[in-house]
Design a protein around this nucleic acid. Sequence first.
RNA 1: UCCCUAGUAGCUCAGUUGGUUAGAGCGGCGGACUGUUAAUCCGUAGGUCGUAGGUUCAAGUCCUACCUGGGGAGCCA
Length: 493
Amino acid sequence: MYFCGPERHIFNYRFMIRKKVREILDGEATGTEVLVKGWVRTHRNSKNVSFIALNDGSTIRNLQVVADVNHFSGELLGEINTGAALSVTGILAASAGSGQAVELVAREIVLLGGADPENFPMQPKKHSLEFLRENAHLRFRTNTFGAIFRIRHAMAFAIHDYFNRRGFYYLHTPIITASDAEGAGQMFRVTTLDALQPPLTEEGKVDFSADFFGRPTNLTVSGQLEGELGATALGEIYTFGPTFRAENSNTTRHLAEFWMIEPEMAFYDLKDNMDLAEDFLKSLIRYALDHCSEDLAFLATRLREEEKGKPREQQSMDLIEKLKFVADNEFVRLTYTEAIDILRNSNHYKKKKFQFPVEWGVDLQSEHERYLVENHFRKPVILINYPKEIKAFYMKQNDDGKTVAAMDVLFPQIGEIIGGSQREEDYDKLVARMEEMHIPVEEMWWYLDTRRYGTVPHSGFGLGFERFILFITGMGNIRDVIAFPRTPRNAEF
RNA sequence: UCCCUAGUAGCUCAGUUGGUUAGAGCGGCGGACUGUUAAUCCGUAGGUCGUAGGUUCAAGUCCUACCUGGGGAGCCA
């Protein structure tokens, strides 16, 4: 650690209040003495002065620190490389250069931590997202990932704020669960048994009664069922927690560990559910536009640069325009049956451009959803009333005997961003459906009790947080909107 | 899991139908210049061409397997 300048400045350094770069650039008066701490983005030497771009994460903008080369040792200046951490005190001044309004004229610089330029991987240049993913521990130090994670934070905060203002309670549903009845995909086993020599039953099977919980347990794939228990007493609840799927999915839209928001509301029917989902998404987008404009502007520019080489029809809408468009326009609402009709009457269908068949009863493929959202309506779509055969057991059975009160919110590029439904509140119908679908009814006694005692119409949905952040930031790969992505064969960091 | 595609210097990439000592820009290092803006200019070091086999007089280049990344599909949020 190097201290430069007279001792009295060390005294100042210790007792001054540190300012964030954001505060300073947003209007700290010139002429005042300030203390900042942060990381060096670039360092340029000049004959008499040395320029240091300092970033402390509070904003995407850097503070230009100007150091008189005659005032600081060459040894210190030589260690101020990209990535180094500094503490700087100085006088804020109107900038003599043209790139910024104010700059910090350094009086004292303390090297808190150096960064060996021969080994520090983050260079002051454009890195590929693949390279940064392999250096996920350091990618926070780039403009792009700084912006993404500030926005991700803002969105998490806005979600809590949205629900809190509307009287929803934040319910913490369990991460470890013994039920695998949801059928929402492959689960991760949680066990303390010896993997090589587990205790065996007389039949030679693994004896889970000797396991920690005395039964097989897994990581949760959804907090919904427990959420319903909360909603049928507290009224409106939401969960916001990690979710785990052990599916071997290798796509830009899937993670083995992701975060999901699942509101569950008593006395809401499907229409109320749709209204909430639409208002919820629009409110979050407006929050981002209002509170993350600098970071969004940076990401918008980044996206435009990235797509420069693409033909015009493949370029996406300007990020900020896209967000405003979704926030300001009604989502299209239609039934599954209507969607099938539209698809079958489309020129796309007549020219046999769909790879998969379109007929009532089969699940819509990505290509069908994308056609509806990106070609036909050109705006977000809420599809409702799907055939019961392709949806989960807990969804409310409609009077037609064929469909359930499901709703999927489809976004351009992302696909299904929200999946939800009105829940079946009738005990007999629910049990009948569970038996049809071979769901172990006895194990679910606690869930069924909500229908046995004071059952009410209720609804809910799940929003994939990372998919939403993908939409907000305009990023293309879900691995770039979570700090440390977990995907098949990847659990580094 | 399936299909396509890629793996060459620290990073981003070029490398012609297989043919001598594998190139560039950026970054690093050394120097020059300079209130600079991912500064500029000059010089310099740095590569068993993903791994293992194979074909061939000869393989970065062709073939096979595997590993890893990317794109698409399925599953889904």
